[in-house]
Every structure is written in C-alpha cells, then in structure tokens.
Design a protein around this nucleic acid. Structure first.
Lengths: 367, 367
DNA sequence: TCGCTGACTTGGATCGTTCAAGAGCAGCAA
DNA sequence: TTGCTGCTCTTGAACGATCCAAGTCAGCGA
C-alpha cells in the first residue's frame, strides 16, 4: 500500500523545503509564481492533503463545527432541523469546514457537550439551534470566548452574538394576506402557548396582517401545545363555533394537519370521485411556483374552511397542505458566513451580525 | 482566561511524569492503584481531556466516524436515515466516537468524499447507508483497507464486509400474517420495481407468508416507483378490480399513504362525526404495545380495505397508518459494535460479522 | 550486604504541520 | 566595493500526545 503523503514527501519531490510547500497551500502570495505552480503540480500529482490533526496542533484551528442533532420530537416539525443539518453540511463544506455531531437532552447537557467536545476536538465554533428565552447556552459560550452562531434570535436575551433567523411574523402575515385575498374575513390563529419566542413571533404576523386589513382579530385565536391531535381538537372548537373563523393560520404543520383532518372530516371532501382525487394529488407534487399560479383556489370553494401550516414539512407536501416554507439553504449559508466572520474577526470590536430571512408561502390545496 | 490544560499540567499538579498520566488514561493496569486514583483525581479536578489532534498524530486514531447525510429525497422515507443518524450519534458517543458528516450526490461523489475526508481528517471508519446492487463503495473501501460497516446488505455483491440490516421480508411477512389473522384472504402487495435489493426483500416476505397461509398470490402485486401519488393511483387500480385484494401490504409509507388516501376517499370514512374522529386520533398517539392490543380492529370492519406501510415514518403516525417499524436504535448500536470490532480486529482473519434485525408491526387504524 | 526480579516511572524521539527567525541573492544608491 | 532593502526560500523549534527503551526502587533470597 502507498505510504502516507506528507508535506515532507511533497517537499522532497518538488525539491523545496517543507515550509515552502506550506506557504503554497496557506499563503501563496509569499511564493514566486514559478515555484508555486511547480509545487502545486507535485501536490496535485501526489494527491497531498494537509493533515488536519497536525495543522490543528500548531495553528489551533480544527475546521470543525459542532452541531447538535436533536431527537425527532413529534416527528413532524423536528424534521426541519434535519433538513437544516443537511444544508449546513453542504454550506460548511463550501467553506472547507466539517460538521461534527453531538446529542444532548437539554441545555445543561448541551453545555456539558460543549466542554467535552472543546476539550477533545476543539471545534472552531458551534451552530446552535432552537434558541429560546432564558437560554443559558449563548452566555456560556460567550464567557468562554467560543465562536458561535445561532439559528434563532436571542429571544428576550441580550443581543451579543451573531444570529440568523427566519421572520416568522412575515410568514404568518403572508399566510393571512393570502387568505384575505381569497375572500376570508374571519381568519383564526392556532398557535402555541405564549412565552416561547417563536410562538409570539408567528402570532404577531397574523395579528398585524389582520389589523392591516381592517379585520377584528378578537376571539379568533387559540393556543395549545403542538401536536396533530391537539390541532384537530382545537380546530373543531374554533371552526364549529357560530361566529368562528372561516380559515386558520397555524403555527406549525402539526397543528395544521390536525385542523385539516377536521376540515376534511366535516366537509366530506373525500367523498369526491377517486379519479378526481388522484389527479388532484398528482398536481400537488408540483413546485411552489406552479402551485402559486392556482393561489385563488381557496376562494372558489369558500364553503370549505382554509388551513395554512408552517414549515413545509414532508407531511404538508404529502397531504396537500398550504404552508409557509423556511429558506433553510439560505439560513445555512448565512450561518456559515457569519460564523466564519466571527472566526476571522476574532475578538474584534465589530458588533455581531444578524440575518433575518423571509419565508415564502407554498400554496397547495388547503388554502 | 484559563490556559489550556495539557497532560503536562496534570503531571505537574499530580507530581508525576507525563507518561504516568498517559498510562492512567490509556493503560490503567500499568499504574499502582494509589497513584492511579491520585492522578485521576487531578484529571477530574482540572477537567483534563486528551487532545484528539495530538493523540491522532501519534496513534493514528481520530475517533471520528464518517457518515453521509442524504438530502431529504421524497421527504417521507428519507426521514428514516435522519432518525438513524441521531441514533448513531448517540451510540457512537457511548463508544467515545464522534460523527463527522459529508454529503455526496452519488456513489462516485461519495468515493471522492472518502478520499477528501481520509486525507484531511482520517476518520477511523465509515458507516454506509443505502447499499444497493453494483454498489462501488464497499469495494473501494476494502481496496484501501478502510474499516467500515454498512446499514444494508451487500445486495448481490460479494459478502466481504461487516453489515447490519433489518429483515424486510420478516416485516412484510408479519404484516401479511396480521392481515390473514384479521380475516383477509386476497392480500395484495404494492412494491417497487425489481432490481433494488430492498424491493425484492420486502416482496419476498409477503410472498412467503401468503404461501404459508395457503393463499394464492397470483395477480395480487404491482410495482411502481415510490411516491404518494403513485401509491394512490396503483391502489385505485388494484382495489377497484372485481377480484382485487381486500388489503394491501406496501413497501413504503409513501405508497401506503397514497393507498390509504384512496381507501378513505372511497369508503367515506371521514364522514363520521368529528368527535369520534378526534377521540380516535388521540388514541393513535399511544405506543406500539397499546396499539397492538387493538390488533383485530381491522377484522371488525372487513368492508374497508386494510393498508399497511413500511418504516413507521412521522406521516404514518400522524394519519394512523399501520406500519412496519425498523429498530433503528438497535441498528445504530450494532453498527458501532461491528465497526469497533473491525477496528480492533484490524486485518485479522476473522470473517466479517453480520447482524440481521427483525422489525415489528405497529398497529394503528389502517389495518 | 549484594544482586536479582518485577513493578512502576522517566526521558527522549516522534507524528505532520505552522510559526519565528535567519540566510542567500538580486537590485540599487552611495 | 559596501551597505541596504525587499523578496524568496530555508532552518530550527514548537504544538500535545503516545511509544519505546532505559532507569529507579522496593522486596526478596542468598
């Protein structure tokens, strides 16, 4: 078997010192173009790659980013973090970083995981997900001077670190406006209990859109812990009421799925001919752009309550749920960009950067 | 800020040499218990962890395992790989390993990814997913002498490496037997086109169970590329036929979801009272064990075709689909166990180990 | 008292890389 | 010629751990 190609091998083959090879790789401007090309050719020929372990020993940079992989919670919404993880791996690779995973049951365990990971592998930074009020993680990392970016705003907490987030309010506002345009007047909001920043954020978009349209939101909202069953139960209460809403904006696809189940149950939509349903289902596989061209379909069947979810999960795609999609690829790229900025900026005085991305509505059958 | 704790720090603090500290960590039996405890106490007090980079330089072991994270394909079935990844991260942590991610669009790109990863980070091994006939990856890794385990049998290929898999045939057989017990006689199979090992495997379980029950499988199977719409279309064809099946065993939850949609559409099940539906949905949240106690529910409504899926995806849980669940946690643990065995065994002469795990049926509403 | 054995400890070399400092050389002005 | 500058490249040391071989010491028998 071919023995390992080290920087020494390359140096010998190219007839230069190891340092020159190192410079070709890390600081090309220090090397005369002629030499550089020659060394580079040898590098390519031998397939040399710098050993990260050795590099890390000297420079302290591991080019590793720690990310927590969460257990699939309800299995529906948890999925978006997996999709995010995939995008993040790709974005990281573009910047020559790798993702190392860790698990943690709660915030305290996660901080323990930081310590473990930092001591042994010294990742250059972390990407945190699922930030929430009173989150102890950012503070700990700031104290230790560990670079990191969060996917999620520092809800309520001090704004002392770089973050990327999706504007949930803009998402629910777009959903609400879509329903208004379709002729709905009493548009309800089915969300989560207050306190979790995300919950308030998504609610506020619905609220402001309602007011902007001159509609009265009073009594049109309910809050419940996430889940399909809970969504169905709540939707039943809301939609069955005499002056209840004719459409629902939901804080998650789980809730929306429950609500949509209820709608289908009561309107007997499934009693339509199999052929029609088959054709319809096939159409929903199209892209958001395709779907958007049919965006007024909700109005044409005003008798059926409309439902809009949040997150564009696979379930939503499967059952034809109109939903708000987060631009996860952009989020991932922004995370990497901000993290590398923090890494390069070091303890610089520049204030932490923020990126707030706008989600878009994916129109399917349910609204 | 506290400067880094190295093995030297510990040695000084404990009043011993660095080698003794190293021995306490890596070869405790070489150290007198008294000394060992004292040194261990200092290690704990200072929170010392051996630097992986330095360790790897000398010993060659990185304690890193490379795993590919796949793009969410159809979004329904792809999800099981994400769940597997989570379990794998946890199992790896138990054995003091970390998971590094990489992406690759196809097998060739994945082999390129191996080269990149090996050269820079030299992971100790890989866990491969989604093996298939004519898979070039195992051969490449074997040639290079890189340790690895696959989640998935070497379909058709030579049996020269360790693998872990789930007995798909046992799963579809259990599903079929469940339907037989519920009184069904004409049980159809809705699967994928032949050629992919997994497709044939799942089909064979249905086939053998049918024969074992003395039932004639002729004309009761269809094969189609995965997808909800395809499932609905195929189910319509099969179930609407005069002598068509009264129940369907499907190769995936995607197909099963389509089929179940069709069943609900034609039987008008959703026309039942909202209250009843709400109660029912709530019940389906229960565990497999709970669900199993109602396992004869299918028989009591013999008029409604039964549908069974495969993979126990979140969608299945959400819509109450009976399905075959893969024991992903066990798979992950077995992968780590086999991989460490390969690692320790080195180029030993012992034949590669295999683990074939049995899935179990999760009974919900659809059968 | 001496030497031997075995258990434990010690110093030094080493892994592959980068950092800091030095050396060679051409070009140019004095 | 001498000295200086700037560019290019080389040399030696260091990062933090492990491995190897040699060293120390207590305990023991003669």
């Amino acid at each position: 078997m071919p023995s390992k190609v080290t920087i020494r091998t390359v140096a010998r083959q190219a007839g230069v010192s190891v340092q020159t090879v190192s410079n070709v790789v890390n600081a090309p401007h220090l090397v005369r173009p002629e030499t550089r090309e020659h060394v580079q050719a040898v590098i390519d020929r031998l397939g040399y790659r710098a050993s990260q372990a050795a590099r890390q020993m000297r420079s302290g940079r591991s080019r590793l980013i720690g990310v927590r992989i969460e257990p699939a919670r309800d299995g529906i919404n948890g999925n978006i973090l997996d999709r995010f993880l995939h995008e993040l791996t790709e974005a990281a690779a573009q910047a020559e970083f790798r993702i190392v995973l860790y698990t943690a049951a709660d915030d305290v365990a996660e901080i323990q995981a930081y310590e473990d990971l930092l001591a042994a592998y010294s990742p250059d930074g972390f990407v945190l997900t699922s930030t929430h009020p009173d989150d102890p993680r950012p503070g700990w990392l700031l104290d230790k001077g560990v670079p990191f970016v969060t996917f999620g705003r520092p809800w309520g907490g001090p704004d002392r670190h770089a973050w990327v987030d999706v504007d949930g309010a803009a998402g629910t506002a777009a959903a609400t406006e879509h329903l208004v345009a379709a002729g709905h007047r009493r548009i309800g909001f089915l969300g989560w209990p207050e306190g979790a920043g995300v919950a308030d954020d998504r609610r506020s978009g619905w609220l402001s859109a309602m007011r902007a349209a001159g509609l009265d939101p009073t009594g049109l909202e309910r809050h419940v812990d996430d889940g399909v069953a809970a969504g169905e139960r709540m939707a039943a209460e809301m939609l069955a009421a005499p002056d209840g809403p004719t459409a629902l904006v939901c804080a998650s696809d789980s809730l929306a799925l429950g609500a949509w189940n209820y709608v289908l149950a009561t309107t007997g939509h499934y009693a339509s001919s199999p052929a029609a349903r088959t054709a319809r289902t096939a159409r929903t596989v199209g892209t958001a752009a395709n779907a958007r061209s049919r965006s007024t379909s909700g109005a044409s069947r005003a008798s059926r309550p409309a439902v809009i979810g949040f997150d564009d999960t696979p379930v939503a795609r499967a059952v034809g749920l109109t939903t708000v999609a987060q631009p996860l690829a952009e989020v991932a790229q922004a995370c990497i960009r901000l993290l590398t900025a923090v890494l390069d900026g070091g303890g610089g005085s520049s204030p932490p950067e923020h990126v707030l991305l706008t989600p878009h509505l994916v129109v399917r059958d349910s609204a």
